[in-house]
Design a protein around this nucleic acid. Structure first.
Lengths: 176, 176
DNA sequence: GTAAGTGCAAAGTGTTTGCAGCGGG
DNA sequence: CCCGCTGCAAACACTTTGCACTTAC
């Protein structure tokens, strides 16, 4: 996981010391730049990694994939990459800040291109139907940075999850 | 899980229909009121459930336990409750809004007493040492409510996670 | 050529479940 | 006294890993 609070990313994957979450990371890379990030860090550009980068690069902004979903997407394009490699690649790309790792209240992680790490996505999730919407909020980011600074922390990423009821479900009869 | 976006809480556990996350839920209950919540919903007050309520009731505000940690706490007090029952009870209590379910970027969930659902805790987590601090922020809540309203959602819970570097770690040499 | 990367199957983790027996209301 | 609850062990979902083989550089 990107945010490996304890268990750090495998060393074997870090020929050059890579301090997680510290890349300044410019925004909106081109597809070629994504490959460059790998190359520059000394990682090999295997067809599997290229393909996975392709998938994420072509993913509509706001969409995100779990490992399983990535597998499915790969299969659709006739790429047969083992689940193990998918997991390894997702972790690698996340540790390089190429992908952002999201966790909703589900039991698996989702990934998306970290196009612009300075304005992370936030999510609102309907507790009834599971519908999720994404949004940005400069104010949230600014506030978060303040809150962190007050406590002596330097923000790397901000994740806001709003659990809520969407239009169709607010009106339902209350239980208690 | 509390926020079972899809997989709903076991039916067998809901003698009275309980719409997750819709309890208005007053703040700061007494220990006895916690038991009452169970009783009123038709759940049995078993010694196991009482004991688990005790543990959480006596937990310093701001602390939270995972299922494993709960087990350990129980063992310390010579209560031997099976892991299965712990999980079942955590889920039950979360579905009743007695406990709040938190998920950090770790692979297991944490629980705390949902003393006052209207001011949820927020967390700042150091990516290097794993240290986590809690805090409240009225502004975040207010902002979140606005953001939700704009999108036609009604907030049930707000979870903000700030991934950051704490004092000891900001100063470390950058990688890239 | 050689270390890094892959695929496979086996092992882990955290959590859930089927079932027989127990006990709260 | 009966159905909800518990404990146990087996099952699960997701993710990681050891190892032999392959391949990018």
């Amino acid at each position: 996981m990107l945010y490996s609070t304890k268990k750090s990313v495998k060393k074997e994957m870090q020929p050059e010391k890579t301090k997680i979450g510290q890349e300044p990371a410019e925004s909106l890379q081109t597809r070629a730049e994504l490959s460059d990030i790998l190359r520059k860090k000394g990682f090999r550009l295997t067809p599997q990694r290229e393909k996975i980068l392709d998938i994420f690069y072509e993913l509509p902004a706001g969409e995100h994939l779990s490992a399983e979903e990535l597998q499915k997407a790969l299969r659709t394009e006739n790429s047969d990459i083992s689940l193990a490699t998918s997991y390894r690649t997702l972790k690698l790309l996340a540790s390089l800040n190429v992908l952002r790792e999201l966790d909703f209240a589900e039991d698996h992680k989702h990934y998306e291109l970290a196009r612009n790490p300075k304005s992370p996505h936030h999510h609102i999730i309907c507790l009834d139907c599971g519908k999720t919407e994404e949004f940005e909020s400069e104010e949230i980011i600014r506030l978060s940075e303040d809150l962190a600074r007050e406590r002596g922390f330097q923000i790397v990423d901000v994740q806001l999850k709003l659990f809520a009821l969407c239009e169709q479900h607010v009106t339902e009869p209350k239980a208690s």
